[in-house]
Amino acid sequence: MSHSTTAPPKRKAGAWAVKAVAVVLAFIGIVLLGGGVYLILLGGSWYYAVAGALLLASGVFLFRMDRTGVLIYAVTWAITLAWTVWEIQFDWWAWVPRMVAPTVLLVLVLLCLPALGARRSAPNQVA
């Protein structure tokens, strides 16, 4: 993973931005995973633990500058959308906590794509 150090300055800045997003995702993922497991133990919804695990994975991949992270986040977002519709249908106020923040994150993650552009996923890169 020493490529970034040899990258041109512009790319380097982009990489730092991606890593920042990755750290945020991973942090949120850890909190959601921990709290979500507790919620499951209390008899509650499985969504948060699942979403937390996926966010964490997404963060890890992104930190490695791996586009798989984007894919995982996109899947998480889609799951969130499906779950929202399933749980509360189209009560729009109830969509706010479920969809607004994940969608903001989706935009950030998609903005990472250019910075990740040169490299597909890490294994491809190696190949």
């Binding site: 959601l32 507790y38 008899g43 948060y48 749980e87």
Partner: peptide, 19 residues
């Protein structure tokens, strides 16, 4: 599912309180 928040994080907190 009636629990609220500004994001999934605080909504999760309220769900835990509920349970």
């Amino acid at each position: 599912r009636d629990m609220y928040g500004m994001s999934p994080l605080d909504q999760l907190y309220c769900r835990i309180q509920f349970r």
